[in-house]
Design a protein around this nucleic acid. Structure first.
Lengths: 110, 110
DNA sequence: GGTTTTTTCGTAAATGTAGAACAAATTGAT
DNA sequence: ATCAATTTGTTCTACATTTACGAAAAAACC
């Protein structure tokens, strides 16, 4: 499955980076995940997902300006690549396709 | 992450089971995945996802009729539970929420 | 017994989780 | 001005869960 698919957490991170554009970096992503989903991801989890996504070509990174205000290391900012967009859209349309083929009866058995 | 989240492949399997209702079982699921997505999943991968989904309470299984025609073991048929439905819908609405917050500019950098 | 269909089992690889260790930038004290 | 303390952020290391693959075992029919 290497390199080809988007894991569940990876996809979440990719979407969050879109929401945060253009100021998406590790800690901000972690905070936005908590804010939007209530899920508390460890910082290491976020960064390892980021590395994998960049390896796969779904993200690109660059260092932020050094003109920060209050101390702290420079941010590593991430943006979505064309490949990343394609992957997210592919997932989205596939799920919609399947969703529409599911008969009402299939839902909700106890 | 145990028990709480729906992995990427697990979610796909869950949707396919809906599409196949009420005749979803291991091999049929494998074939439908190939048909709908072009992705060729190993039979073992499908069954291990099924086991986990059932453990998590997202699926329920029962053995199919023994009135088969040509030899072959009895099928283990799967249907989605109310919990399973809830999980899929939760994922769906969360993604839509995020999707709608992504500005156009965020997409498609090379 | 032999064949067919399907599930179960064992092992390996990729992804997800977690937090400590390390690094760089600012602040404040001397 | 220099240096330690603080703050903010990333990298590293270890382990758990999920996904992948295919051989082996089961069950049904001839």
């Amino acid at each position: 499955m290497k390199g080809t698919h988007l894991g569940e957490f990876e996809e979440l991170v990719l979407l969050i980076i879109g929401v945060l554009y253009p100021d998406a970096y590790g800690l901000a992503i972690r905070n936005e995940i908590r804010k939007q989903t209530g899920r508390s991801a460890a910082i290491g989890a976020v960064h390892s997902a980021l590395s994998r996504l960049e390896e796969k070509g779904f993200l690109k990174s660059h260092l932020g300006d050094s003109t920060s205000e209050r101390g702290g290391r420079r941010k590593k900012l991430y943006i979505i690549t064309a490949e990343g967009k394609k992957a997210v859209e592919h997932n989205r349309s596939l799920r919609n396709l399947l969703w529409n083929q599911i008969p009402d009866l299939a839902w909700g058995h106890s």
